[in-house]
Design a protein around this nucleic acid. Sequence first.
RNA 1: GCUGCAGUAGCUCAGUGGUAGAGCGCUUCUCUGAAAAAGAAGAGGUCGCCAGUCCGAUCCUGGCCUGCAGCA
Length: 297
Amino acid sequence: MSNLPKVIVIAGPTASGKSDLAVWLAKKIRGEIISADSRQVFKGMDIGTGKITKKEMQSIPHYLLDIASPKKRFTVTRFQKLANQAINSILKKNKIPIICGGTGFYIQSVIDGLIFPQVKPDLSLRKQLEKQSAKQLFSLLKKKDAKRARIIDKDNKRRLIRALEIAIKTNNPIPELKKQNNFDILFLGIKKDKEELQKRIEKRLLKRLDQGMIKEVKKLKASGISYKKLYDFGLEYRYLSLFLQNKITYQEMVSLLQKEIEKYAKRQITWFKKDKRIIWIKNKKEMLSLVKNFIFF
RNA sequence: GCUGCAGUAGCUCAGUGGUAGAGCGCUUCUCUGAAAAAGAAGAGGUCGCCAGUCCGAUCCUGGCCUGCAGCA
């Protein structure tokens, strides 16, 4: 039994019904919700991210939605900081924080208290390194930080660039990743079988197109967000903007998007599967008994 | 019915006289300040069917079957 503050986490792939479940639980146990979603943090990205509506929140407070401009860069460490603040203010009210979302890296940064190297992203350095091939970057890294080079994904430029950024700025090898235990965690995962999830993805996709998802992307573009940036947001924002540029047809957009969302869901599942703390649940009843047990003992 | 073109991985197609590849899909995986991003690996094929030539045929020859286009 630990004295650490209790935090509940609800994770799962996209379209698994996390948000609804979290609200339902919050009402039962006097909880408040912290969203852990790397795209829902942005203002104006609502339909495309499947963001919960005011009405659906049923007056349960939600944190970390609409807290950043899509024109600016948002990072894990920013998320981590804000999430910790949110947890503290929920705890002060004597309520239970429920972290709910699908961005595994964000969730992990908070519940494992990851300590990242103190090296801020340097965009001009990154741009410069970007010009080199993965092979060149890799051999550069071997010189600067041989240990890191041994375990890094040598084809992944993005990873290589960040590793080099750290090595160059600090002139030191990257420190080992530190974790700290700040909370007593109940980690729940929503289990859905493949066919059901695919059906839910399809249904939700068509519904959101109906709700004006295209208009939302047009609006973002009109507000000054480039197609390149929209492409980088991925999924809905990527494929809708390709359609708006006439690079693909409407039909292609819908079928590509369906496939891509399915693949994304699989990547999420791969991530979560690794975490052995997760208890996989199928319904509210299973969840509630686990939660009661967690809170009262 | 005739003529032409095609038939190779789940799909779209490359290719070679010494039993085969790509892209996409599928499966599995990675993740140290971009994570809906960015990457990696793997499993799939008696190369339409039957015969012939050849040391050897997916590739050449003949026949058959199937699809597409044109002509009648």
